[in-house]
Simulated assay, not measured.
Amino acid sequence: MTAVLLAGIAGLALLDALNPATIAGVALLLLAPMAHPARAAAGFVAGAYLTVLALGAVVYLGADVAADAAGNGLVWVRRVAFTVAAVALAAGGLRRLRDRVRPAVTVPGWVNPASAAVLGTVMTGADLPNAFPYFIAIERIVNADAGTTRSLLVIAGYALVYCLLLLIAGAVRGDRVRRRLGGLYERLGTEKKQPRSVPVAAGYLVAAAGVLSVAVLA
């Protein structure tokens, strides 16, 4: 594991952290009228962290086994990463072919500081198809051949960096921060009308085709 490799993985984790669903979820919890919103946000982040960590461990161990058995573990991870990215882009493009209303991110009635981790797990898990930077990072980790223990530690670090923005959001307090979070939620979490756009849809589908061609040729 070189410093350059670790820096690249950290960069992928920061890119992956720009996730509207989870950021909006934390902002909404901090703004929610409950007794301990910061504790609920921390529980949400814990659920998101464990979900990302578990996925990374499963993908890494599967790739490692495939590499030992057939020598194609890296190819498998690379194809999965780019195929997932292509599917996510294609789905986004197809959605833009019709008028739609993006549903608002809301706090279910059962959410409290004790159960917020479940919400973090569900929302993060539902958004994992967009986490293709994670698959690319795992490919690099497998390629580094640093051993299972070190590799899993790096994956745990990736998950921590992924949740870093959420951890910061969950730790801060004050009216000024709440106003900024309110603006963030207005952009990312409220119901929003998305009119049909053929050019945008075409752009998504062209990008999906390009990414899928990379997956096929990987």
Rank of each mutant, 00 (worst) to 15 (best):
R178A: 09
V111Q: 12
D16N: 07
N19Y: 08
L55D: 07
V77N: 08
E186M: 10
A202E: 04
I141N: 06
Y134H: 12
A40C: 04
G109M: 05
V216W: 14
L94E: 08
N19E: 11
T148W: 11
T148M: 13
V4W: 15
G183L: 12
Y49V: 07
L119A: 05
A169P: 10
M34E: 03
V142Q: 12
G93R: 11
G62D: 10
A201K: 03
E139A: 15
V154W: 08
F82E: 05
A159L: 05
V58F: 09
R179V: 06
D175M: 06
I141S: 04
R98M: 09
L12G: 05
V111F: 09
N143S: 14
R176A: 15
L89S: 01
R140N: 11
G210A: 12
L28H: 05
I136W: 05
V75Y: 12
V161N: 09
I136R: 01
V214R: 10
T190A: 10
L188S: 04
V105K: 00
A171E: 02
V58T: 11
A88D: 09
F135S: 08
V80C: 13
I136M: 10
G56E: 07
R39V: 04
L14Q: 06
I23C: 06
G183A: 11
G92W: 12
A81Q: 03
N112C: 13
H36L: 07
V4L: 15
T106G: 08
L217E: 13
P133N: 01
V45Q: 09
G170H: 00
A40Q: 07
L212G: 01
L153T: 11
A104F: 00
L128A: 10
E191I: 01
V198A: 10
P103I: 09
R179T: 12
V206P: 03
V211F: 04
V161D: 11
P195Y: 00
L61V: 07
W110V: 04
L181N: 02
A42Y: 05
A159H: 06
A144Q: 01
V80N: 15
L89E: 01
V45F: 01
D145T: 06
H36T: 14
R95G: 14
A208T: 05
V58G: 08
V111R: 07
A86F: 06
I141R: 04
A88C: 13
A24P: 05
P103Q: 08
S151W: 00
R196L: 11
L212H: 00
L5A: 15
A201W: 06
C163P: 03
S197N: 14
G93F: 03
A169S: 14
A57F: 11
T124S: 08
I141L: 05
V211T: 07
R100N: 10
P133R: 07
V75E: 10
P195N: 00
A85S: 09
A137G: 05
V142T: 13
A202Q: 04
P113M: 10
D127V: 13
N143C: 13
